[in-house]
Design a protein around this nucleic acid. Structure first.
Lengths: 204, 204, 204, 204
DNA sequence: AATGAATGAGTGTTCATTCAT
DNA sequence: AATGAATGAACACTCATTCAT
């Protein structure tokens, strides 16, 4: 019973790795099985199809992202203070770093032409909404003016709020090796840049 | 003779479309042939492999991007003026809009684990370098202080300068349909956000 | 478990047949699958490629040929006696008759321009060496003079010792049908000719 | 006109080379075109099909072989004399050496299961018949006994008369490189072996 | 006589998925 | 819960051959 749960988890973890390395279509169920150390047929015992593995992985990301938002909305009493903002930033950076493999998959998949909006857009929507709620609360509490243009706010939150974090997850490793910097150096530079751009745009 | 050039171009254009819709691995050579209205074997008359089609497409993007940079560096006499900056912004937005299909492909491919740096990183590098040159020239001409931290500047240019444009190309259509806005509305909102974040970070 | 071994063997046997009928390049994996009564993909479950099937077949021949030589070298106490020689001849004729399909393949492949020496030449080498050992032992035991010219001996063993047997395997069936003789008639005529030529050359 | 004849001949010569290197089925019309320095379509201007090229090549060999036999039957007044025999041997060795590429093709093709007898068997038949005629004439002129068993004579002529020459053509180059001997050394060793085996069998 | 472009029918190989145990 | 064997449907790529000029 314990074993069975662990096996399923191992399959998911391995699929995550291989999907992120090769892309969903480029990944082979054979490779997942081999690297997870299980028989290929066993994968089909736990999952209906290769596609279901992907959906499971992405929906897990969704759930975790939601949890993070709820949690950070609860924990962060004062976003606009330096320390409060840094805490939030760290929580986000840690999240995208920890989940960077899945985020890569999500981004790659989001490029495809599907009828439904891509997971990244969905993710963006809930993150943005939660963020906007936070901001609105903050702002109104402080009597700060809140931008009138809803569209502009959405664009701000998505393209300069969420997207750089996703790009961070996507290119973190390539960046570190191309420019020969440590994880810390990159994170700190990213923090300074992020505050000078996105955060700055929030202040009046 | 003319026809042959046109046929090759049609194959490339169609591959571009299908790669961007399905991803490289998800795309079928059969589908490219069918949609381009040519015999499948003819594709292999012009290109050694499916992969060579991809490389051709991406290297064309590379070339066009370089040309754009050279051109915009030459044309824009005064980036720091409102009108000058808007011109540059329009040139970039037009470029990523026009080439959005290829950019989608490039981003999706850049997520894969390859030995060499992804095309997006390469693109980032040359764009950044060119940009940094421009900026340095502008700044020194005006006696404005230029940031000391090279890494921070790189991060600024890549994650808040280039990346939002790429994201714009990637999600433009999804955005328009999800939030039910016109291309112009999105572009204008994006312009305002971009000036308030990335451009603002450049001013002292 | 047993079945799996049998299935693999059936694929090999069928490939042997089809390669010998059509030549390696002329043979179709589809045909092998159909005639072996297995799914085409199953062939690739057991063998990495069409080429690996060929290599397996040829290396099996190699092994069997070696076994035959070891065995006949051990069993034949007196090659130079009429009965002893006939026994050896029968063993060889049976071997090439039984393996004639593979021998056809080996010969056809040996005609191609490959970097490495063809399997026929390799086969020739080990057969010749074993044969020469036998002869040398016999001769010295009997005080018979042994040819000085090593090259001449090699040529003798290969072109008039081995080659006629291979040709027998290659053309046996065509011969029987063209000249309308039975297997026995051909074998007996071949025996008389072989003793009058190759064997005679060994006697002083 | 001259050119056209020369072009056709060059195509044939190149096809000969490539068929002998790769086998008929392994050879590519593209490769023949490239190596002959002509456009692929031009090959189909001169020959109906790839198969017709093969047939042309093989039928040329046939013709040349016949010519050789007629000629050698006419020229050689006394086969049974040492000098006469050597002359004949040289003529044959030269023929198979010069035509070794085509002979390789013929042998490889002769391994396939075709309804009609292979070209090697056909070749064998005419050579044998001519040879037998020669021998019979010689023998009766000298009052030497002529073997009663027709089958045995056929086997003798084919398997120890013709076949070693074909094998010589087939393996000459491999032999020279494997045993590191010159063309002359091999030919002389072959001559001595041939006289000690096949020729000896003809003498009472 | 010669060529660049085009094509139909394969051809070896792969892959997600299923079956029997 | 787990596995080795099996399969149908593709799939990228090839190749002999033809067409238009």
């Amino acid at each position: 019973m314990r074993d069975s749960v662990e096996t399923r988890a191992r399959i998911l973890k391995t699929a995550e790795k291989i999907f992120s390395e090769k892309g969903f279509d480029g990944a082979r169920v054979d490779d997942i099985a081999k690297e997870a150390g299980v028989n290929k047929a066993l994968i089909y015992y736990y999952f209906k199809s290769k596609n279901e593995i992907l959906e499971t992985i992405l929906s897990n990301l969704f759930q975790e992202a939601k949890n993070l938002l709820v949690q950070s909305a609860g924990n962060t009493s004062d976003i606009s203070s330096e320390g409060g903002y840094r805490k939030l930033f760290d929580a986000y950076i840690n999240f995208v770093t920890r989940n960077r493999k899945i985020i890569k998959i999500a981004i790659a998949e989001s490029a495809k032409d599907d009828a439904k909006p891509s997971i990244v857009m969905e993710l963006g929507k809930i993150i943005i909404n939660s963020e906007i709620e936070n901001i609105r609360r903050e702002y109104s509490a402080k009597g700060i003016h809140y931008p009138d243009d809803k569209q502009e706010l959405l664009v701000l939150e998505f393209f300069t709020g969420l997207v750089p974090f996703l790009a961070y997850a996507l290119y973190k490793e390539q960046w570190e090796s191309l420019y020969n910097v440590s994880e810390e150096e990159l994170r700190e530079a990213f923090y300074r840049v992020y505050t000078r751009t996105h955060l700055a745009a929030h202040l009046p």
